[in-house]
Design a protein around this nucleic acid. Structure first.
Lengths: 198, 198
DNA sequence: CAGTTGATTAGATACTTATCTAATTAGAAT
DNA sequence: ATTCTAATTAGATAAGTATCTAATCAACTG
Protein backbone atom coordinates (compact mmCIF):
# COMPACT_ATOMS: atom_id res chain seq x y z
CA UNK A 1 0.00 0.00 0.00
CA UNK A 2 2.74 2.40 0.92
CA UNK A 3 4.92 2.30 -2.18
CA UNK A 4 1.93 2.73 -4.48
CA UNK A 5 0.95 5.75 -2.49
CA UNK A 6 4.44 7.18 -2.77
CA UNK A 7 4.49 6.54 -6.49
CA UNK A 8 1.10 8.14 -6.98
CA UNK A 9 2.15 11.24 -5.12
CA UNK A 10 5.45 11.36 -6.92
CA UNK A 11 3.82 11.07 -10.34
CA UNK A 12 1.41 13.83 -9.42
CA UNK A 13 4.12 16.24 -8.34
CA UNK A 14 6.38 15.38 -11.25
CA UNK A 15 3.64 16.19 -13.72
CA UNK A 16 2.78 19.49 -12.06
CA UNK A 17 6.34 20.63 -11.46
CA UNK A 18 6.74 22.24 -14.84
CA UNK A 19 6.00 25.84 -15.71
CA UNK A 20 4.60 25.08 -19.13
CA UNK A 21 2.24 22.46 -17.80
CA UNK A 22 0.96 24.76 -15.07
CA UNK A 23 0.28 27.41 -17.68
CA UNK A 24 -1.54 24.87 -19.80
CA UNK A 25 -3.74 23.94 -16.86
CA UNK A 26 -4.45 27.61 -16.27
CA UNK A 27 -5.30 28.08 -19.90
CA UNK A 28 -7.54 25.04 -20.10
CA UNK A 29 -9.27 26.11 -16.90
CA UNK A 30 -10.50 29.14 -18.81
CA UNK A 31 -11.42 27.67 -22.18
CA UNK A 32 -10.92 24.73 -24.46
CA UNK A 33 -7.94 25.00 -26.77
CA UNK A 34 -6.45 23.28 -29.76
CA UNK A 35 -2.84 22.17 -29.75
CA UNK A 36 -1.92 24.82 -32.30
CA UNK A 37 -3.55 27.50 -30.19
CA UNK A 38 -1.71 26.51 -27.04
CA UNK A 39 1.54 26.46 -28.96
CA UNK A 40 0.96 29.98 -30.24
CA UNK A 41 -0.08 31.31 -26.84
CA UNK A 42 2.94 29.89 -25.05
CA UNK A 43 5.39 30.58 -27.88
CA UNK A 44 6.26 26.92 -28.28
CA UNK A 45 6.01 24.38 -31.09
CA UNK A 46 3.12 21.97 -31.38
CA UNK A 47 5.16 18.83 -30.61
CA UNK A 48 6.21 20.37 -27.32
CA UNK A 49 2.59 20.90 -26.41
CA UNK A 50 1.78 17.32 -27.37
CA UNK A 51 4.58 16.16 -25.10
CA UNK A 52 3.14 18.07 -22.15
CA UNK A 53 -0.42 17.02 -22.90
CA UNK A 54 0.71 13.40 -22.79
CA UNK A 55 1.93 13.92 -19.25
CA UNK A 56 -1.29 15.65 -18.23
CA UNK A 57 -3.24 12.83 -19.87
CA UNK A 58 -1.32 10.26 -17.83
CA UNK A 59 -3.03 11.73 -14.77
CA UNK A 60 -6.35 12.15 -16.53
CA UNK A 61 -6.12 15.88 -16.00
CA UNK A 62 -7.33 16.82 -19.49
CA UNK A 63 -10.21 15.71 -21.66
CA UNK A 64 -10.04 15.50 -25.44
CA UNK A 65 -12.90 16.46 -27.70
CA UNK A 66 -11.91 15.85 -31.33
CA UNK A 67 -13.54 18.17 -33.80
CA UNK A 68 -12.71 17.21 -37.31
CA UNK A 69 -9.03 17.43 -37.62
CA UNK A 70 -8.35 19.52 -34.57
CA UNK A 71 -8.10 18.22 -31.02
CA UNK A 72 -9.85 20.44 -28.54
CA UNK A 73 -8.60 19.91 -25.01
CA UNK A 74 -10.21 21.03 -21.81
CA UNK A 75 -9.45 20.67 -18.12
CA UNK A 76 -10.81 17.73 -16.16
CA UNK A 77 -11.57 19.76 -13.04
CA UNK A 78 -13.04 16.89 -11.08
CA UNK A 79 -9.91 14.82 -11.44
CA UNK A 80 -7.74 17.76 -10.44
CA UNK A 81 -9.75 18.32 -7.30
CA UNK A 82 -9.72 14.64 -6.55
CA UNK A 83 -5.96 14.42 -6.82
CA UNK A 84 -5.11 17.60 -4.98
CA UNK A 85 -7.44 17.03 -2.06
CA UNK A 86 -5.92 15.52 1.06
CA UNK A 87 -2.82 14.41 -0.77
CA UNK A 88 -0.62 15.53 2.05
CA UNK A 89 -2.66 14.77 5.12
CA UNK A 90 -0.50 13.70 8.00
CA UNK A 91 -1.75 10.13 7.78
CA UNK A 92 -0.79 9.94 4.14
CA UNK A 93 2.58 11.43 4.91
CA UNK A 94 3.59 8.83 7.41
CA UNK A 95 2.99 6.06 4.91
CA UNK A 96 5.62 7.60 2.67
CA UNK A 97 8.40 6.37 4.88
CA UNK A 98 7.11 2.83 5.20
CA UNK A 99 9.56 1.58 2.63
CA UNK A 100 12.56 2.46 4.78
CA UNK A 101 13.67 -0.21 7.22
CA UNK A 102 14.31 1.45 10.58
CA UNK A 103 17.05 -1.01 11.55
CA UNK A 104 19.40 0.36 8.89
CA UNK A 105 20.39 3.28 11.07
CA UNK A 106 20.76 1.31 14.27
CA UNK A 107 22.87 -1.31 12.55
CA UNK A 108 25.22 1.38 11.36
CA UNK A 109 25.58 2.84 14.81
CA UNK A 110 26.18 -0.53 16.47
CA UNK A 111 28.74 -1.45 13.85
CA UNK A 112 30.63 1.71 14.72
CA UNK A 113 30.55 1.38 18.51
CA UNK A 114 30.49 -2.34 19.21
CA UNK A 115 32.96 -5.05 18.31
CA UNK A 116 32.74 -8.64 19.50
CA UNK A 117 30.09 -7.70 22.00
CA UNK A 118 32.41 -5.10 23.55
CA UNK A 119 31.52 -1.42 23.56
CA UNK A 120 34.41 0.48 21.99
CA UNK A 121 33.26 3.82 23.33
CA UNK A 122 30.07 5.44 24.52
CA UNK A 123 28.60 7.73 21.85
CA UNK A 124 28.31 11.38 22.76
CA UNK A 125 25.29 12.06 20.60
CA UNK A 126 22.05 11.44 22.44
CA UNK A 127 20.35 9.48 19.67
CA UNK A 128 23.34 7.21 19.14
CA UNK A 129 23.67 6.60 22.84
CA UNK A 130 20.04 5.56 22.91
CA UNK A 131 20.64 3.04 20.13
CA UNK A 132 23.58 1.57 21.99
CA UNK A 133 21.66 1.35 25.25
CA UNK A 134 18.73 -0.38 23.56
CA UNK A 135 21.20 -2.98 22.34
CA UNK A 136 22.80 -3.25 25.75
CA UNK A 137 19.60 -3.68 27.72
CA UNK A 138 18.86 -6.86 25.82
CA UNK A 139 21.72 -8.46 27.72
CA UNK A 140 19.59 -8.20 30.82
CA UNK A 141 16.77 -10.71 31.24
CA UNK A 142 13.25 -9.35 31.54
CA UNK A 143 10.83 -10.21 34.33
CA UNK A 144 13.30 -10.64 37.15
CA UNK A 145 15.03 -8.49 39.71
CA UNK A 146 18.74 -7.78 39.76
CA UNK A 147 20.98 -6.48 42.51
CA UNK A 148 23.36 -3.67 41.65
CA UNK A 149 26.21 -6.12 41.87
CA UNK A 150 24.62 -8.42 39.31
CA UNK A 151 23.93 -5.55 36.94
CA UNK A 152 27.49 -4.34 37.21
CA UNK A 153 28.80 -7.80 36.43
CA UNK A 154 26.78 -7.99 33.25
CA UNK A 155 27.68 -4.47 32.10
CA UNK A 156 31.35 -5.03 32.78
CA UNK A 157 31.32 -7.78 30.15
CA UNK A 158 30.65 -5.10 27.58
CA UNK A 159 32.44 -2.03 28.88
CA UNK A 160 34.65 -0.89 31.74
CA UNK A 161 32.56 2.07 32.83
CA UNK A 162 29.58 0.15 34.16
CA UNK A 163 28.54 2.99 36.44
CA UNK A 164 27.90 5.34 33.55
CA UNK A 165 26.08 2.66 31.61
CA UNK A 166 23.90 1.80 34.59
CA UNK A 167 23.01 5.41 35.16
CA UNK A 168 22.21 5.91 31.48
CA UNK A 169 20.01 2.83 31.29
CA UNK A 170 17.93 4.31 34.10
CA UNK A 171 18.00 7.78 32.58
CA UNK A 172 16.79 6.62 29.19
CA UNK A 173 14.10 4.59 31.00
CA UNK A 174 15.23 1.24 29.69
CA UNK A 175 15.67 -0.06 33.22
CA UNK A 176 14.02 0.81 36.53
CA UNK A 177 15.48 0.97 40.03
CA UNK A 178 13.37 0.55 43.14
CA UNK A 179 14.79 0.04 46.65
CA UNK A 180 18.20 -0.85 45.27
CA UNK A 181 16.91 -3.58 42.94
CA UNK A 182 17.01 -3.20 39.18
CA UNK A 183 14.64 -4.51 36.58
CA UNK A 184 14.55 -4.32 32.80
CA UNK A 185 11.51 -2.49 31.45
CA UNK A 186 9.52 -4.02 28.59
CA UNK A 187 9.95 -2.33 25.18
CA UNK A 188 6.37 -1.12 25.38
CA UNK A 189 7.41 1.23 28.18
CA UNK A 190 10.47 2.58 26.42
CA UNK A 191 10.47 6.14 25.24
CA UNK A 192 9.63 6.47 21.56
CA UNK A 193 12.57 8.77 21.22
CA UNK A 194 15.56 9.29 23.41
CA UNK A 195 14.33 11.91 25.85
CA UNK A 196 16.41 14.96 26.52
CA UNK A 197 16.94 14.46 30.22
CA UNK A 198 20.47 15.82 30.58
CA UNK B 1 0.04 39.04 -8.79
CA UNK B 2 -0.29 36.26 -11.28
CA UNK B 3 3.36 35.47 -12.01
CA UNK B 4 4.24 35.33 -8.32
CA UNK B 5 1.46 32.86 -7.82
CA UNK B 6 2.74 30.73 -10.67
CA UNK B 7 6.26 30.86 -9.30
CA UNK B 8 5.12 29.92 -5.82
CA UNK B 9 3.19 26.96 -7.10
CA UNK B 10 6.03 25.92 -9.34
CA UNK B 11 8.57 26.09 -6.52
CA UNK B 12 6.29 24.03 -4.34
CA UNK B 13 5.82 21.28 -6.90
CA UNK B 14 9.47 21.26 -7.89
CA UNK B 15 10.52 20.69 -4.30
CA UNK B 16 8.01 17.91 -3.76
CA UNK B 17 8.58 16.15 -7.06
CA UNK B 18 11.46 14.03 -5.85
CA UNK B 19 11.23 10.58 -4.35
CA UNK B 20 13.96 11.12 -1.79
CA UNK B 21 12.41 14.33 -0.54
CA UNK B 22 8.99 12.73 -0.19
CA UNK B 23 10.54 9.95 1.83
CA UNK B 24 12.31 12.50 4.01
CA UNK B 25 9.02 14.24 4.67
CA UNK B 26 7.46 10.91 5.58
CA UNK B 27 10.32 10.13 7.88
CA UNK B 28 10.29 13.51 9.57
CA UNK B 29 6.53 13.27 9.98
CA UNK B 30 7.16 10.32 12.28
CA UNK B 31 10.17 11.46 14.30
CA UNK B 32 13.02 13.91 14.36
CA UNK B 33 16.16 12.72 12.65
CA UNK B 34 19.78 13.70 12.28
CA UNK B 35 21.35 14.03 8.85
CA UNK B 36 23.46 10.94 9.42
CA UNK B 37 20.40 8.95 10.39
CA UNK B 38 18.43 9.96 7.32
CA UNK B 39 21.41 9.11 5.15
CA UNK B 40 21.63 5.62 6.67
CA UNK B 41 17.90 5.02 6.40
CA UNK B 42 17.70 6.02 2.75
CA UNK B 43 21.03 4.47 1.78
CA UNK B 44 22.46 7.78 0.67
CA UNK B 45 25.42 9.91 1.71
CA UNK B 46 25.10 12.81 4.12
CA UNK B 47 25.83 15.53 1.53
CA UNK B 48 22.94 14.27 -0.55
CA UNK B 49 20.64 14.61 2.43
CA UNK B 50 21.94 18.12 3.07
CA UNK B 51 21.18 18.97 -0.53
CA UNK B 52 17.58 17.82 -0.18
CA UNK B 53 17.14 19.46 3.20
CA UNK B 54 18.21 22.75 1.66
CA UNK B 55 15.35 22.48 -0.82
CA UNK B 56 12.87 21.61 1.90
CA UNK B 57 14.19 24.52 3.96
CA UNK B 58 13.61 26.89 1.06
CA UNK B 59 9.90 26.22 1.55
CA UNK B 60 10.16 26.27 5.34
CA UNK B 61 8.99 22.67 5.41
CA UNK B 62 11.50 21.51 8.03
CA UNK B 63 12.61 22.89 11.36
CA UNK B 64 16.12 22.56 12.70
CA UNK B 65 16.88 21.91 16.34
CA UNK B 66 20.65 21.83 16.83
CA UNK B 67 21.78 19.58 19.64
CA UNK B 68 25.47 19.89 20.18
CA UNK B 69 27.08 18.88 17.02
CA UNK B 70 24.17 17.10 15.44
CA UNK B 71 21.33 18.78 13.59
CA UNK B 72 17.98 17.30 14.47
CA UNK B 73 15.38 18.04 11.81
CA UNK B 74 11.65 17.71 12.14
CA UNK B 75 8.67 18.40 9.90
CA UNK B 76 6.99 21.79 9.95
CA UNK B 77 3.48 20.40 9.63
CA UNK B 78 1.74 23.76 9.80
CA UNK B 79 3.68 25.09 6.83
CA UNK B 80 2.98 21.94 4.85
CA UNK B 81 -0.74 22.22 5.48
CA UNK B 82 -0.64 25.91 4.67
CA UNK B 83 1.06 25.32 1.34
CA UNK B 84 -0.95 22.34 0.25
CA UNK B 85 -4.35 23.74 1.10
CA UNK B 86 -6.28 25.33 -1.74
CA UNK B 87 -3.24 25.50 -3.96
CA UNK B 88 -5.22 24.33 -6.93
CA UNK B 89 -8.61 25.88 -6.41
CA UNK B 90 -10.21 26.88 -9.67
CA UNK B 91 -9.71 30.57 -8.91
CA UNK B 92 -6.02 30.04 -8.35
CA UNK B 93 -5.78 28.02 -11.51
CA UNK B 94 -7.13 30.68 -13.78
CA UNK B 95 -4.52 33.14 -12.60
CA UNK B 96 -1.82 30.80 -13.87
CA UNK B 97 -2.55 31.73 -17.43
CA UNK B 98 -2.59 35.46 -16.86
CA UNK B 99 0.89 35.86 -18.23
CA UNK B 100 -0.13 34.68 -21.70
CA UNK B 101 -1.37 37.36 -24.06
CA UNK B 102 -4.52 36.07 -25.76
CA UNK B 103 -3.87 38.01 -28.97
CA UNK B 104 -0.86 35.84 -29.83
CA UNK B 105 -3.03 33.09 -31.21
CA UNK B 106 -5.40 35.36 -33.12
CA UNK B 107 -2.52 37.23 -34.67
CA UNK B 108 -1.08 33.98 -35.96
CA UNK B 109 -4.39 32.96 -37.49
CA UNK B 110 -4.97 36.31 -39.15
CA UNK B 111 -1.46 36.34 -40.53
CA UNK B 112 -2.17 33.00 -42.17
CA UNK B 113 -5.56 33.86 -43.67
CA UNK B 114 -5.46 37.58 -44.39
CA UNK B 115 -3.16 39.56 -46.62
CA UNK B 116 -3.58 43.25 -47.39
CA UNK B 117 -7.04 43.20 -45.87
CA UNK B 118 -8.11 40.43 -48.27
CA UNK B 119 -9.20 37.04 -46.97
CA UNK B 120 -7.08 34.40 -48.70
CA UNK B 121 -9.41 31.56 -47.75
CA UNK B 122 -12.02 30.81 -45.13
CA UNK B 123 -10.63 28.54 -42.40
CA UNK B 124 -12.29 25.19 -42.03
CA UNK B 125 -11.61 24.84 -38.33
CA UNK B 126 -14.35 26.35 -36.21
CA UNK B 127 -12.08 28.23 -33.83
CA UNK B 128 -10.03 29.75 -36.62
CA UNK B 129 -13.12 30.77 -38.50
CA UNK B 130 -14.34 32.55 -35.39
CA UNK B 131 -11.08 34.47 -35.15
CA UNK B 132 -11.37 35.56 -38.75
CA UNK B 133 -15.00 36.61 -38.38
CA UNK B 134 -14.22 38.66 -35.28
CA UNK B 135 -11.64 40.49 -37.34
CA UNK B 136 -14.08 40.91 -40.22
CA UNK B 137 -16.97 42.23 -38.17
CA UNK B 138 -14.86 45.21 -37.17
CA UNK B 139 -15.18 46.45 -40.73
CA UNK B 140 -18.84 47.06 -40.03
CA UNK B 141 -19.75 50.12 -37.99
CA UNK B 142 -21.60 49.57 -34.73
CA UNK B 143 -24.86 51.26 -33.77
CA UNK B 144 -26.39 51.53 -37.22
CA UNK B 145 -28.53 49.46 -39.53
CA UNK B 146 -27.32 48.02 -42.84
CA UNK B 147 -29.25 46.67 -45.79
CA UNK B 148 -28.14 43.33 -47.21
CA UNK B 149 -26.78 45.15 -50.23
CA UNK B 150 -24.59 47.37 -48.07
CA UNK B 151 -23.30 44.41 -46.09
CA UNK B 152 -22.45 42.53 -49.26
CA UNK B 153 -20.55 45.51 -50.61
CA UNK B 154 -18.38 45.67 -47.48
CA UNK B 155 -17.74 41.94 -47.35
CA UNK B 156 -16.87 41.84 -51.06
CA UNK B 157 -13.93 44.14 -50.32
CA UNK B 158 -12.39 41.33 -48.32
CA UNK B 159 -13.51 38.15 -50.05
CA UNK B 160 -15.51 36.98 -53.05
CA UNK B 161 -17.89 34.70 -51.21
CA UNK B 162 -19.82 37.34 -49.33
CA UNK B 163 -22.87 35.13 -48.94
CA UNK B 164 -20.98 32.57 -46.85
CA UNK B 165 -19.36 35.29 -44.77
CA UNK B 166 -22.70 36.98 -44.14
CA UNK B 167 -24.29 33.73 -43.07
CA UNK B 168 -21.37 32.93 -40.78
CA UNK B 169 -21.39 36.35 -39.13
CA UNK B 170 -25.00 35.71 -38.17
CA UNK B 171 -24.31 32.12 -37.14
CA UNK B 172 -21.47 33.04 -34.83
CA UNK B 173 -23.69 35.81 -33.41
CA UNK B 174 -21.39 38.65 -34.35
CA UNK B 175 -24.16 40.28 -36.36
CA UNK B 176 -27.96 40.24 -36.10
CA UNK B 177 -30.60 40.24 -38.80
CA UNK B 178 -34.12 41.52 -38.21
CA UNK B 179 -36.66 42.19 -40.98
CA UNK B 180 -33.95 42.17 -43.63
CA UNK B 181 -31.76 44.76 -41.88
CA UNK B 182 -28.40 43.88 -40.43
CA UNK B 183 -26.65 45.27 -37.38
CA UNK B 184 -23.33 44.58 -35.77
CA UNK B 185 -23.61 43.26 -32.20
CA UNK B 186 -21.46 44.77 -29.44
CA UNK B 187 -18.57 42.58 -28.23
CA UNK B 188 -20.33 42.18 -24.89
CA UNK B 189 -22.95 40.06 -26.64
CA UNK B 190 -20.50 37.89 -28.52
CA UNK B 191 -20.17 34.28 -27.56
CA UNK B 192 -17.20 33.63 -25.30
CA UNK B 193 -16.32 30.74 -27.51
CA UNK B 194 -17.25 29.89 -31.03
CA UNK B 195 -20.47 27.96 -30.58
CA UNK B 196 -20.92 24.67 -32.31
CA UNK B 197 -23.97 25.51 -34.34
CA UNK B 198 -23.26 23.54 -37.50
C1' DC C 1 45.09 23.33 22.06
C1' DA C 2 44.81 19.21 19.11
C1' DG C 3 41.75 15.77 17.57
C1' DT C 4 37.20 14.08 16.45
C1' DT C 5 32.63 14.15 14.85
C1' DG C 6 28.62 15.76 12.29
C1' DA C 7 27.12 18.93 8.80
C1' DT C 8 27.59 21.73 4.95
C1' DT C 9 29.78 23.51 0.63
C1' DA C 10 32.32 22.95 -3.82
C1' DG C 11 32.99 20.61 -7.84
C1' DA C 12 32.42 16.60 -10.99
C1' DT C 13 29.53 13.18 -13.19
C1' DA C 14 25.59 10.91 -14.85
C1' DC C 15 20.70 10.79 -15.54
C1' DT C 16 16.47 12.96 -16.57
C1' DT C 17 13.71 15.73 -19.46
C1' DA C 18 12.01 20.04 -22.10
C1' DT C 19 12.47 21.50 -26.50
C1' DC C 20 13.34 21.41 -31.27
C1' DT C 21 13.27 19.46 -36.33
C1' DA C 22 11.94 15.80 -39.25
C1' DA C 23 8.98 12.10 -40.24
C1' DT C 24 4.54 9.87 -39.72
C1' DT C 25 -0.39 9.40 -39.01
C1' DA C 26 -5.28 10.69 -39.35
C1' DG C 27 -8.77 13.25 -41.15
C1' DA C 28 -11.04 16.79 -44.24
C1' DA C 29 -11.38 19.42 -48.19
C1' DT C 30 -10.86 19.98 -53.10
C1' DA D 1 -7.53 10.09 -55.51
C1' DT D 2 -4.75 13.80 -54.14
C1' DT D 3 -3.66 17.48 -51.37
C1' DC D 4 -3.72 19.91 -47.19
C1' DT D 5 -4.02 20.52 -42.31
C1' DA D 6 -3.54 19.33 -37.46
C1' DA D 7 -1.58 16.23 -34.29
C1' DT D 8 1.47 12.91 -32.78
C1' DT D 9 5.79 10.16 -32.71
C1' DA D 10 10.87 9.58 -33.28
C1' DG D 11 15.25 11.14 -32.51
C1' DA D 12 18.69 14.65 -31.27
C1' DT D 13 20.30 18.25 -28.25
C1' DA D 14 20.79 21.04 -24.35
C1' DA D 15 19.59 22.44 -19.74
C1' DG D 16 18.69 21.04 -15.11
C1' DT D 17 19.61 18.29 -11.12
C1' DA D 18 20.49 14.11 -7.92
C1' DT D 19 24.31 11.96 -6.37
C1' DC D 20 28.98 11.24 -5.21
C1' DT D 21 33.93 12.49 -3.38
C1' DA D 22 36.84 15.86 -1.45
C1' DA D 23 37.30 19.90 1.11
C1' DT D 24 35.71 23.07 4.58
C1' DC D 25 33.26 24.56 8.74
C1' DA D 26 31.57 24.32 13.50
C1' DA D 27 31.17 22.31 17.76
C1' DC D 28 32.22 19.32 21.09
C1' DT D 29 35.89 16.04 23.59
C1' DG D 30 40.04 14.93 25.65
Amino acid sequence: MAPENLQTLLDFFKVLSDETRLKLLGLLAQRECSVEEMAALLHLKAPTISHHLAKLKSLNLVLLNPEGNTHLYRLNSEQLQLLSRDLLSSEQLKTLAQSVQPEAWETTVLKAFVENDRILSIPAARKKRFVLLKWLVQKIEPDRDYSEKEINAILKQHHEDCATLRRELIGYQLMSRKDGTYRRLPPTEWLQEAGNFN
